[in-house]
Amino acid sequence: MRRFFTSALGALALAALMVMGLVTDAGAQAPAPSQLQTVLARGKLIVGTRSSAIGFSFKDQKGELAGFDIDLARLLAQQIFKDPSKVELVVLSGSADRVPALVSGRVDAVISSFSPYPERVQVIDFSAPYALSDTVFVVRADSPFQKNADLVGKTVLTRQGADLEQMINGSVPGTKIEGFPELSDAFLAFRQGRGDAFFYERAAAYYLMKGTGGRFRVIDDKANPIAASGISIGLKQGDQVWINYINWLLYDLKANNKLQALHQKWFETDALQPSWVKQPL
């Protein structure tokens, strides 16, 4: 038993050290130079992304990273360095890696279909939204479900995450939610009939429904829309110079019609453009 207690104590001490290392009194420090200077001195932009967000950042047929977010990262490099190849893409293994990647300084920005919920904005900062998140329920074509509310009490399969659960419960309370770490596994379970509906981003849903021969359809419920959210670039908290710079790069992309072109290329619609992107100059 004594050895058990010593090891537990050791762990607590380790945790305490980590806490002290992480929490320092920011007021006592001189203002740190902005990430902007670091990026310019380095000569390349380091962007954290994922390889499993269909439509945004995923592996194409050739096994190469593709999607809206990947193109956006290259456009930023083009703006900063006049060279779209001056960007290093770091593939993060999951959504939980996005904040540590920023806090530890391993990446300059996270471009990974990142939605700024109030809980998240307490931890890191976000750019202006460059797209809107549009989530939908997918059901079997021959199922009776026509409105979102028809799914009350039914089983919904989706990617794992309390964020998505909050969204589903907000629009259709009382559904049974089963989350899978891999979106493709959630869709496979749905195809096997393990649930009544599949829930995710519209762009990803259409991609997954390709080649299923009309067996599935999307519920378009304009009267009871699912909570909307923006999609932004994630940035380390407190570096206002860097945040402003990224926002101005986005504005410049909009002014030159490049952001709108990306929407057309990957989503084939302007419905996912935030209002500031749609507005004339």
């Binding site: 939980a96 919920y117 809980e119 998240r120 890191i124 309390a162 659960e165």
Partner: peptide, 18 residues
């Protein structure tokens, strides 16, 4: 499952992993 789901919502990776 529960703590990684929570991280997906609030991004408190360090706290939950500790």
């Amino acid at each position: 499952f529960v703590f990684t789901s929570q991280i997906a919502l609030n991004m408190r990776t360090y706290e939950f992993f500790l």
